[in-house]
């Protein structure tokens, strides 16, 4: 147990002393995953709405892609994005490999199918007749869509939680496209891997605790929002 006690003591000292590299790592993690999850929501919820409420050619195929995408291995995403952004790749001229935008892009690809598929399931549970009812009371297409999203809000909160969860703990893709560059593309998960490889367990455990804490706080917040929504519905 000495190894844990020692690592815990070192990690705590590091956090309390305000070691700048730890907090910059946390900041990069929040920036990258925060932007990725926001983009995933902005794109994924409308896609999920269309999949859940509309009938169009290719819908079935898109649903299969979205559902399959929920189990997409991050390393495969990392590999494909790295190839796309590499010097020899189609987007090599953009010189984005080993940058935060590349990491956001990779995480977006991971989170998007999750958000779209969970949103589609949530909005498809809203009865078609309720949408018809809104229209019959004078709702425009946009107002009808907003009503549907409001009715499906519990499921949409689950989409947020699932999308965030799919990327905050992800390590494979961000390593491959971010490169784990200190102060630039190093995030909590890649830093934990690196410190562990070096046998530097103190900062690894400190970052692991912060990562766990972050996941916990986000889920507590989402649960609270869900509960207040439930109370509103009863």
């Amino acid at each position: 147990m000495d190894i844990f006690i020692g690592a815990f003591r070192d990690g705590l000292t590091m956090l309390v002393s305000g070691a700048t590299d730890v907090w910059s790592i946390v900041l990069v993690s929040i920036q990258v995953s925060g932007v990725a999850v926001l983009l995933a929501l902005v794109l994924g919820i409308p896609i999920g709405f269309a999949l859940g409420t509309k009938r169009f050619v290719g819908r079935r195929m898109m649903l299969i892609i979205a559902n399959t995408g929920m189990g997409l291995p991050p390393v495969v995403v990392g590999l494909v994005v790295a190839m796309l952004l590499s010097r020899r790749g189609p987007f090599g001229k953009l010189e984005l490999l080993y940058s935060q935008p590349a990491m956001v892009f990779a995480q977006l690809i991971i989170a998007l199918p999750v958000v779209a598929a969970v949103s589609a399931a949530a909005v498809s549970a809203v009865p078609r007749e309720l949408r018809l009812q809104a229209r019959s009371l004078g709702a425009s297409r946009l107002q009808e869509a907003l009503m549907t999203l409001k009715e499906a809000r519990m499921g949409l909160l689950a989409a947020v939680a699932a999308g965030f969860g799919s990327i905050i703990s992800e390590v494979g893709a961000v390593t491959m496209v971010g490169g784990n560059l200190a102060g630039k593309t190093r995030v909590m998960t890649t830093a934990i891997v690196q410190y562990t490889r070096m046998g530097d367990y103190g900062p690894a455990l400190a970052l692991a605790s912060l990562l766990m804490g972050m996941v916990l706080v986000v889920n507590i917040l989402l649960t609270q929002v869900q509960q207040s929504a439930e109370r509103y519905e009863k």
């Binding site: 007749e129 309720l130 018809l132 019959s136 009371l137 004078g138 709702a139 107002q143 009503m147």
Partner: peptide
């Protein structure tokens, strides 16, 4: 125009939220 259907599909929320829906639109 306005309509009511066989099953009274009500929106989640209060009775007032429902009756006010079209007025707010």
């Amino acid at each position: 125009m306005a309509a009511a259907f066989q099953r009274p599909y009500l929106f989640k929320g209060t009775v007032s939220d429902n009756v006010a829906y079209g007025l707010r639109l």
